[in-house]
């Protein structure tokens, strides 16, 4: 069972300590949720893990391999997929094309084979399509297959982004606020998908989420962050009853 480990992660922007000494462990088949108020440094942590920004200090391991500071595409190739807080889809392509691009890290043929459409390239195109169709069926997106992404509703776009990440068959999936902007029903569905992905498909999930209902239903472990530091770690009820966390969310006079 592979682990995604982060130790002593620091990210400073000039004098601002956006993330200050954060350590965490995510395991395959488990869901780890990071909660915390806006500006706590949650997104900065996952940007550092996925290689969008090189951390000031600290180490990230995938299994026993150090991946700190690798380029984002190298980290993706190793099997860490992610979604974005504000949805980063390929707006002018169809749902199918978007999801198929998730398959890119499994691409084996050369550009030359693709240009001349050799049998190997054709076989790979079919493989990519198969992988994408499985995801389309799994996430119930079949009816949107050929629609351009730019015209879809917010909830569907979130689904497509999740599908694109899943199509890369990752060992770890990092989600930045997967439920934000979703309706109640969509959030319920999402919770089902997340449990299924972790428990039945063995994917490790690290997610940032504000919806405590969703977090307490699906997360195996919860980390609460504030001002770049970890306030509390543990199961959802433990973290929710932690005095520091309550203070941080509600203010001290309420305690």
């Amino acid at each position: 069972m592979m682990k995604l480990r982060v130790a002593g992660l620091k990210q400073y922007f000039g004098g601002l300590k956006a993330v200050d000494t954060v350590s965490l462990d995510a395991k395959q088949s488990e869901i780890l949720a990071i909660i915390g108020p806006n500006g706590a440094g949650k997104t900065t942590v996952i940007n550092a893990i996925t290689g969008l920004r090189k951390p000031t200090a600290g180490t990230v391991w995938l299994g026993d391999k150090t991946i700190t500071g690798l380029a984002a595409n190298r980290i993706a190739e190793l099997g860490i997929a992610r979604t974005f807080q504000n949805i980063e889809l390929f707006e002018h392509a169809s749902v199918l094309d978007n999801i198929q691009l998730g398959f890119y890290r499994h691409r084996k043929v050369t550009l030359c084979a693709e240009l001349f459409n050799l049998p190997s390239a054709r076989a790979e195109a079919v493989n990519a399509r198969l992988a994408a169709e499985k995801i389309l069926h799994y996430l119930d997106l079949v009816s949107w297959r050929d629609k351009a992404v730019s015209g879809l509703s917010y909830g569907i776009r979130k689904q497509v982004e999740l599908g694109r990440a899943l199509c890369s068959a990752p060992s770890f999936l990092i989600l930045d606020e997967p439920a934000s902007g979703l309706t109640r029903e969509e959030t319920l569905d999402l919770g089902y998908f997340l449990r299924d992905l972790a428990k039945n498909r063995g994917i490790g999930i690290l997610m940032i989420e504000h919806d405590m209902g969703l977090v307490s239903r699906v997360a195996d472990h919860v980390i609460a962050m504030n001002e770049g530091r970890i306030l509390a770690k543990g199961s959802a009820p433990e973290v929710q009853s932690n005095a520091d966390v309550i203070e941080c969310y509600l203010g001290s006079e309420m305690v």
């Binding site: 969008l52 980063e88 198929q100 691009l101 890119y104």
Partner: peptide
Amino acid sequence: RSLSGRALIGLRDSEQAAASLGI
């Protein structure tokens, strides 16, 4: 119609997302 061609389109629409898919 190849994956590389789609990767070009990915580059056009969102570099960040493209990188996060291994491009």
